[in-house]
Nucleic acid binder design. Sequence first.
RNA 1: GCGGCUCUGGUGAAGUGGUUAACACGUCGGAUUGUGGCUCCGAUAUGCGUGGGUUCGAUUCCCACGAGUCGCCCCA
Length: 417
Amino acid sequence: MLTNAPRGTKDILPEQIHQWLWLENKIRELCALYGYEEIRTPIFEHTELFQRGIGEGTDVVDKEMYTFTDRGNRSITLRPENTASAVRAYLQNKLYANSKLVKLFYIGSMFRYDRPQAGRLREFHQFGVEALGEKNPAVDAEIILLAWELLHGLGLDDLKLKINTVGCPACRPIYRKKLKEYFSANIDDLCDDCKRRLDKNPMRILDCKTDAAKEIMEDAPNIESCLCDDCREHFNSVKKFLTASGIDYTVDSRLVRGLDYYTKTAFEIQYAPLGAQSAVAGGGRYDGLISEIGGDDTPAVGFAAGLERILLALELQKLIPETNKKITAFIVVGGADAESYAFKLMTDLRRQKISAAMDFGKKSMKAQMKQAAKSGAKFALIIGDDEVNNSTVTVKNMETSAQEVISLTEVPDRILL
RNA sequence: GCGGCUCUGGUGAAGUGGUUAACACGUCGGAUUGUGGCUCCGAUAUGCGUGGGUUCGAUUCCCACGAGUCGCCCCA
């Protein structure tokens, strides 16, 4: 249907735009505070970037990408997330040449072909942050802090910060093997989905939410026992930094990220009232991604947050401020001769940064007054033949109903008071 | 991709197998002479998501599709 936007997309209407701008401003302020600079990457990239970056076998790559062939026969994909693009831009533009640590953030549309529901759209908006080039766990903590402070600073209550470590190429395979052995032994208790996951990604089984699965999880091997010294130390440091900055977190050894590139630190901030879409922000370290894409071995950390979800949460708690869209002056015209006089007045006011409007529908003065009242204007400037002949304007204060006739030149000063 | 529920005007909605589809809000207009917010009056769905079917007749019954929503999956 011509008058319907595609499934899973949404118009952001004039009555909603102020909350988006407001949120985006908060984000930009906070990022400036933390020393992150904005980057805007293309909305589409070569499909291969995401296949390599996010990883084949992940749901995002296997069944959620908007992929098409362009007229030059290239395979193009609408970005399902922004980390791979940011890394690509980092490498292509040699941002590493400026400093060892490069701190970036982005705000923009992402695309995932998924079944829409509240808080989950096919075109949605993410804010995200990437710190490239530093392996110090303090950066992990800084990233987590930034995400936390944003959401918390917005006024959201009952946020939950969960952290975990998912190991690195040195120790994760050992853990995976252990898990596989354990779950294979208990295969009868696994749900169908998990049986499938056993080979592909046994760590995801930990995330299973079916009741039957809960018992087996209790005794499942913990990654703690498999961690290499480096990963263990790293995780301890992250926790130390977080504790030092006084934010509450829980270690959830079942927290697993769905994208292949994560190493070591993984975290998620949840807002439970959002139901199935409670994950408002999530991210972690991805030391392997940059080399995977073709750069030198470079450590990095980042996270992304869903703006729709944040807005939904803010709405639930009524934390979005109203904006004042009222105008200062509404010009009411009586008689055709007055129209150009009024039009010029309106233009002059606007040139002096005084918001002004008038009716273009040639309505009765009564109707125009109604409109003036509805517009919330502080003043109605009434112009008829008398005013035109004497170079005056009748100024009516809409709140007090007091009105007086003043000369045209006095108008700006009068209504600025 | 899977399952449940829902789908009446700009909005919230009532309603029925059969003449003009309540009510409220909103919007627009009017209540004489150049003026609002209150009040009063009037106008606002040839149409009940779309397409089929059943029926003498369907907005009301059935089917398909679509969209929304909730859950699963996944993720932000």
